[in-house]
Nucleic acid binder design. Structure first.
Lengths: 247, 247
DNA sequence: ACCTGAACACCGTTCAAGT
DNA sequence: ACCTGAACACCGTTCAAGT
């Protein structure tokens, strides 16, 4: 999607200051059903992305949803890439941040942060996919990372190592969640649970002659469901990470 | 790209047994310049993806590169998604595996595996992006994960915890590398080094009033280049992970 | 200031036809 | 068995025009 036109360098909504005239209007203009603005457009985009997935999300269906012609939308946003960045940041606003006044240990707060990031992303698979394509530097996203930095700032780690600590935790969470939602989505598309789907795939792989059997990576352990296993593997790895950081 | 047509569930090349008649020919047919087959198609795809990026990679330019009509390619592969999966697995073949006979500590082998995965992916940014979209269960990819499993099998970890260990390491590496190559590519697109680009972005963010300053996440430490910092953060986090796993 | 309609330059892919 | 040409059903977006 990004950089479709030939050699135009791609940029970011966040780096091109928005002309405040557009989509910004005073309170005198009542929010009648048909009035368009950035906010309404982004909200509709997020809703459609959630409901139908990013593959089916086009400027044309967005316009239809808004009861408007495709080109109307372009009055408020420069292009689809910008809209995706806006939608991405809107989702970042949903991530619950721990209350610093609660007085929890920094490790618990870091854990909580990781968990709520994961929860949010699993419910917006298109968003986590967009991470691979867009810079994610909107205000809500920055608010999240500022919060994360404040949490590690309370740790005993020397200042020079804090970025590595954040990197370790959140790159891991990103990787894990990305993988997780890919399986969930695949399963949903073929109409099964992730459990069933993964088992089918494991079966096919085991039979394919040219594929050397992975031997165990995909198999259930102790009769637990895959959902349970996923959760506990996630927790376990997080524990290791945080434990390792403190020696 | 995946699942473009409306409600057709997406599948995978690896799950739909290839009719061996196609693209498989006896040795009697010399590999003349114009002869098409799966192998040649996939090789050309990888080359084009490397050179021009996935945004510009279309079936039409692929066909042109092969000196053939777009639809010729479809005799050998079912669709573009399948081709991407094939290309993805071709790249997985490049990942260097540690020699189990070298007698290194399992931790060193795990590290080596992570490093060579990262190196391979950084040189094929389209491939790491494809991870978010496709099942990655081709023979070379499975060979890689079988190797990784063999390595942790040599660790003192109880069997039930090995999947979590693998998950921790490789999800982290995936997340890190994904982020890394996104910045590298963005920088390249606007014609600067990742260093310069990141600095510019940090500058813009600092100035944007609605964005709460991240405060330090993006700043250099001790005058080192970003490349150096990236490498050392990566190493540090890997150490933590592996150390944490062993208590 | 805001919205439309028609058009452009693309996509991936189907299908009937050629050799 | 392999390859082509024309066409279909889409995309995002430009541009000139309307109100």
């Amino acid at each position: 999607m990004a950089a479709k036109r030939a050699s135009q360098p791609r940029s970011s909504v966040w780096l091109t200051p928005e002309p405040t005239t557009r989509g910004r209007r005073g309170p005198e203009r009542g929010s009648g059903a048909g009035s368009l603005d950035r906010e309404r457009i982004v909200a509709a985009a997020v809703r459609l992305l959630d409901e139908q997935g990013d593959a089916k999300f086009t400027m044309r269906v967005l316009a239809t949803e808004l009861g408007v012609t495709p080109m109307s939308v372009y009055w408020y946003i420069a292009n689809k890439d910008d809209l995706m960045e806006l939608a991405l940041d809107a989702v970042a606003a949903e991530i619950k941040l721990p209350d610093p006044a609660a007085g929890l240990d920094w490790r618990e707060d870091l854990r909580a942060l990781a968990l709520s990031w994961r929860r949010t992303m699993v419910s917006h698979p298109w968003a986590i996919r967009s991470y691979a394509e867009y810079l994610n530097i909107g205000p809500h996203s920055m608010r999240f990372s500022a919060c994360a930095q404040a949490v590690v700032a309370r740790s005993p780690l020397p200042e020079a190592e804090r970025p590595a600590a954040l990197s370790a935790v959140f790159q891991y969470v990103y990787g894990f969640t990305s993988m997780e939602s890919r399986w969930l989505e695949y399963g949903k598309e073929v109409g099964r649970t992730a459990d069933e789907f993964l088992e089918e795939v494991a079966g096919s792989i085991a039979q394919a002659p040219e594929i050397e059997a992975g031997g165990g990576l995909m198999e259930r352990r102790a009769g637990r469901s895959l959902d349970e296993m996923r959760d506990s593997d996630f927790d376990r790895a997080l524990d290791w990470l945080i434990a390792g950081m403190c020696d």
